[in-house]
Every structure is written in structure tokens, then in C-alpha cells.
Design a protein around this nucleic acid. Structure first.
Lengths: 348, 348
DNA sequence: TTGTATGCGTTATCAA
DNA sequence: TTGATAACGCATACAA
């Protein structure tokens, strides 16, 4: 009794109910008017056999799979899980499944992930590509085949969700500058140097607009791994004069800065201010709470899914572009530049 | 030029290369020795057309889909994302894809999720069911059809990964009792009352073994949502005598307790000790670091995937059961019971 | 080594 | 309203 029992098919149901396969199909899909007696017999047979439709067969025949593909770059960052939650929620509401792939910021991973989504003939894709320039051919092929793609601005899709990191970064810098900070460290912990460059640009421009020059040493570059961001924070804290504020390229980077600062006995925000981007859930749970710029990632995920599913439903829809609002969340981790400034600490 | 172009099939490749479909199949799958010239022609045709195999057709024909299903209960808890990361990593290594579903601790969601995984004819399932008793029929049907299922102990699967919450809870209680704590609050924030009952039992037994009685008011029950856990913590902190320690049923619950305590100006651990379970990444990032019992969830996810894929590869393997180690992680959030005990605060 | 034929489970087209 | 039949893209058994 260990042998595999094949799953029942429509044929089995049809035989048991004494009808044709076509009738079963119509009943199961509710496609046509079926005599009450027949419908009941079929439904009973379905229940009795435990019949469950075979999606692969449906896909092969009908050309649509009921699955959408989702590719995220980094499974360590809660920010991206929020996207996943949003996409999944909307997909399920509309009777779609989500095929999740994670590129881990690696080009080969990303290629394999994208390819496997295409092999699966997903009905559409939500892509957050780290290496979009590598996949122009694939994306073009998807377009030709009528498979919609949505994503952030890097995905060159017809529909897109814009998270205005540029404006968010400017407001954040205005906040810090308004508190009197001038030596502001930036932890640029990203998958590749080009990432988040609008945030870096806003950082630089905000500083130069005040007449200052950008001190390159204040920009600490590293990979998006906690340990590296922590080291980057240490390097910033070692600078003399020490920065009076540190801005993380994301909340995770800001956390590592908070921890590095606290380990040195620095008080936040009395001795040093720290801020990040994204507003992942724990930003509010830290002590002090982390000042950040909200990326609305859950809502962005929901929106991405909606854009995608709407386009799947109607390919002729005009292109849409949804811009998330800029929203600074000021919490306890930022405060005025210390009166007793750190200049004093400069070694002779 | 907006019309959909159908994806090329093996037939197209065969025509372009001037060979039969069978030859294309052999080349693509590397199944047999093919003449060098023929192989080259086929590969060129594949590249030229951008041919990508159609998984649904392969599934239909071969009976296996190359996908495994994963069901997690709660997308808000990083603990479960660690499982996802682990499962995904191993799956990708072995050329499987992951179909992710989230039940959100809701029975209907869970039913729909499980059903859709079955419809997809996934080759196996990693299930973390919240309502296993509702799905006995489905699980039995999967078993009959040779679709392996792995999961935690609730899934009644042949292979399983055991996270010894019982032992973890006992060690945690020993740690707290050893620090002198006797009035220990427990935040039981779970999807349904039965969940985590081994932890509750260990809590109660550890206390009674010392001769004390369990004060039911010290067990604060709520749903696994941050706001509710926070309220539960408030209730515990309102008790007089106030507990000298609070144990969260998971790190997230412990966080809310930390925040509630800090908002009242209580110092951790001088005034109150706080501990949790799981050791999610941020536990180490908080100030103070959170004492917790490591659930090894990433490694557990990897193990689950390995068990599943091994069984898919060889259904006759003997059943396996992997038990994760008990590992307490003592950080700064727990300390000796305050000398100045809170008894003093008792209202007359 | 390569080609031909059949069927996987379903849907769609056509007849009845 | 219902039934028979073809076709979706691929893999496999078998023949050449």
C-alpha cells in the first residue's frame, strides 16, 4: 500500500458520474449552464474522488498559468519582505500564486531566477532587478510574448511604481542640516556601486548647496551585509573630526551605525544623530526610535501587483506610473548637533 | 508590432536546425550522445530563437514539476522568513523553484494555499501548518500520490525537523530562575491558543518544580501582532507586585515588552529582565541585546528542504528526524533580580 | 545516432 | 445541454 496512486483526472470524474469529460470541465469551471441533476452528479464525483485540477495541463492548453513571478534582490532586508507581503496579498485576492525567487544581489543567481520564471510561463513578473542591463534580451522577449513586467524604475516596464528616494533623501538632508549637522557620514551599503545613487547625489548636492564641499571620507562604501555596514560605521566614528550625524542608505545600515555608536558609549541623539531609509517595522521598536524616510514598501508591493494583474487582464491599458509619497518619519534618533562639538577632539 | 509573438517551441527549433523534435529534446536535456555537428546546429537554433523549455509541458509529460511548495504562517515574523531563506537556498542549489504561500494564521487562507500548491502539482511540500487537523484528508491524499511532505512536528510527516522548544524553554526558565527571578511574566502571543503550548508547559512546570504556584495573571495571552503584544506587556507591567522578568513567546513579543518597559523608564536589565525565543537577527542589534533561545530557523529551513528533496529523489529512504540543538543566547537583556524588589510597591 | 508516433490532462471547436 | 475530437509542448518507447 505504498505505491503511488495517480491523482484522479477529469476522465475519472466523467466515468464515475457517467458523463463526458467536457461536461466535467464545464461544471468545474462554471462555464456554461448545466442541468441541475448532471451538475450534482459531477460535483459528487469530484468530491468522492478528491479531484483537483491539474494546473500544468490548464497552462499548456489555455496559455496562462495563474502564477506571477516575483524576484527580490536581498532576503536579509525586511524592506524587501514587505514587498513580498504586498505582492502576495494582492495576488491571492485575485486568485494568482506567487513564484518567489531571490537573486541575492548576484548576477548569476539573478539570471537563473529570471530564466526559471520564464520557463514556468508565469503570466507576468514583478522584478526588482539588480543587474537590469544584463537582461535586456530576456525582457524584450517577454514583452514580445505579451508577458507584462512591472518593477521599480530600473525595470524599464510600461507600468511602474516609483519610490521617490531622491525627494526622500533631500528631505532627510534638510532635516539633518536644519538640526545644525554639517559633518554627516553616509553608509553606502549596497549590492553594487551604482545602487541608490540618487540618494548619494541628493546627499552631495544638499551639502554643496550650503556652500560646503563634500568630504569623500564621509561616504563609507560597503556591501549590504550587517557586519560590513557595522565596520563602515566604525570607520566613520573613527574619523576626526567625528561626524555629528550618520545617515544609513537603508534602515539596516542605520541600525549598524546605532549599535556601533552605542558600543562606544555615545548617546543617541545627544552625541550623534542617526537616520536611515525605508522605515522597516523595527525602526519604531528601537530605543531610541529611528528617524527614517518611509518607503511604503508594503503598499508599493501591493501596487506593483495591482499594476501587473490589471495589465494581464487588459494588455491595452495605458501605461501607468504610481509615485509613492515622500514621508519623513522623525523619531528619537536625530537631534540637534551637539553644543560641545567634536572639533575639540581633533588630535594636534 | 504589439501583437503577442508565441514563444518558440521545440518544433520551431527542430525546423530551423533541420532535425527532428526528438533530437532537439536530446540536445536540450543532454540525454544522449549526439553528433557534434548536429548538436551545434541545434544549439545555434536554440540561441537564435531564444527557445526556453515549457515547464508546464514537461510537468504534464514527465509528472514532475521542478517546484516545491512552501507554506508559512506569518509574514510579519522574521523568524519565518529565515525558514524561507533556508528552503529557497537549498531548493535553488538543487534546481528546484519555490512556490511561496502565506496562511496569515487564517484557516481559510491556509486551505486555499494548500489547495493551490496541490493544483500546481508541486513535487513536494514544506508545510508549517497552523491548523493541521483541518487538512488530514488533503495530507493523506498527497501521501497516497507519492508527494512528500515535510514540516515541523505538527505536520505528521515522515521526515521532520524538530525545534526543541520544550528544552529551550526549560533552559530559559533555568536561566531566569537562576538569576533569582520568581515572578516571571509570559507573553503568549500566538495564532491560536494551542500554539507554543510546550513553551507554556515548560514555563509552568519550571515554576512549580521550585515549589511555587503558577499565577495565571502572569500569562498574558494575545494574538501575534505587535500592538497586541505591546498591550499584553503593559498589562504585565501594571501588575502589583510587578514581574521582575518577562519572557516573550518569541523575540517579537520580547521586543514589545522591551519597548513597553523602556517607555516607563524601566532599565533593562537592572529593573526588569526580558527574554524571548528564536534569535531573529535584530535580537543582537537591540540595546541591550536580547537574551533568547536560538531556533536555528535558517538552518531548519535548509534542513527541511534537504529532507524533502532527498525524499523526492528516493521515496524509499528511511524516515528521518533532525533535531536542532538547544542553544541559549545570553545577552544584556537579562540580569539578576533587582535587590530592591518590587514588593515595596505593593499597594496596602 | 536520429526519426516517428503516442499520450500526459485540459480546453476549445464543433456536432448532436 | 451534452458529447466527441483535436491540439497545447514535451518526453519516451520504439523503429530505423
Amino acid at each position: 500500500m505504498r505505491g503511488k496512486t495517480a491523482a484522479p483526472t477529469m476522465r475519472d470524474v466523467a466515468e464515475l458520474a457517467g458523463v463526458s469529460i467536457q461536461t466535467v470541465s464545464l461544471v468545474v469551471n462554471g462555464k456554461a449552464q448545466i442541468g441541475e441533476a448532471t451538475r450534482a452528479r459531477v460535483q459528487e464525483a469530484v468530491a468522492q474522488l478528491g479531484y483537483i485540477p491539474h494546473v500544468a495541463a490548464q497552462t499548456l492548453r489555455s496559455g496562462h498559468s495563474g502564477n506571477i513571478g516575483l524576484l527580490i534582490p536581498d532576503a536579509h532586508n525586511p524592506h524587501f519582505w514587505n514587498y513580498v507581503r504586498g505582492v502576495e496579498e494582492v495576488a491571492v485576492q485575485r486568485n494568482y500564486n506567487v513564484l518567489l525567487t531571490i537573486s541575492n544581489l548576484d548576477p548569476d543567481c539573478e539570471r537563473r531566477a529570471l530564466r526559471s520564471l520564464i520557463e514556468q510561463r508565469v503570466d507576468g513578473l514583478v522584478l526588482m532587478l539588480s543587474y537590469p542591463e544584463l537582461f535586456c534580451a530576456e525582457l524584450e522577449a517577454l514583452r514580445r510574448r505579451g508577458k507584462p513586467v512591472v518593477g521599480d524604475s530600473s525595470s524599464c516596464s510600461r507600468d511602474e511604481v516609483l519610490v521617490p528616494y531622491d525627494g526622500m533623501a533631500r528631505e532627510m538632508m534638510a532635516h539633518l542640516l536644519g538640526l545644525g549637522h554639517r559633518r554627516i557620514g553616509l553608509i553606502h551599503s549596497v549590492g553594487r556601486p551604482e545602487h541608490a545613487n540618487e540618494r548619494v547625489a541628493a546627499y552631495c548636492e544638499s551639502l554643496t548647496e550650503l556652500g560646503g564641499a563634500v568630504d569623500e571620507r564621509l561616504i563609507a562604501r560597503c556591501r549590504p551585509v550587517f557586519s560590513e555596514a557595522f565596520d563602515a560605521a566604525q570607520r566613520l566614528l573613527d574619523l576626526r573630526p567625528r561626524p555629528t550625524a550618520i545617515l544609513g542608505i537603508c534602515d539596516l545600515a542605520a541600525f549598524s551605525a546605532m549599535q556601533a555608536a552605542m558600543q562606544r558609549g555615545l548617546r543617541i541623539p545627544q552625541d550623534i544623530s542617526i537616520a536611515g531609509f525605508d522605515d522597516i517595522e523595527i525602526a519604531a521598536l528601537l530605543t531610541p526610535g529611528l528617524t527614517t524616510a518611509r518607503a511604503h514598501s508594503f503598499e508599493a508591493g501591493r501596487t506593483l501587483a495591482r499594476l501587473l494583474l490589471d495589465r494581464i487582464a487588459d494588455p491595452d491599458l495605458p501605461p501607468r506610473r504610481v509615485e509613492m509619497p515622500v514621508e519623513l518619519v522623525i523619531r528619537g534618533s536625530t537631534g540637534p548637533r551637539p553644543e560641545t562639538d567634536i572639533w575639540k577632539e581633533v588630535a594636534p
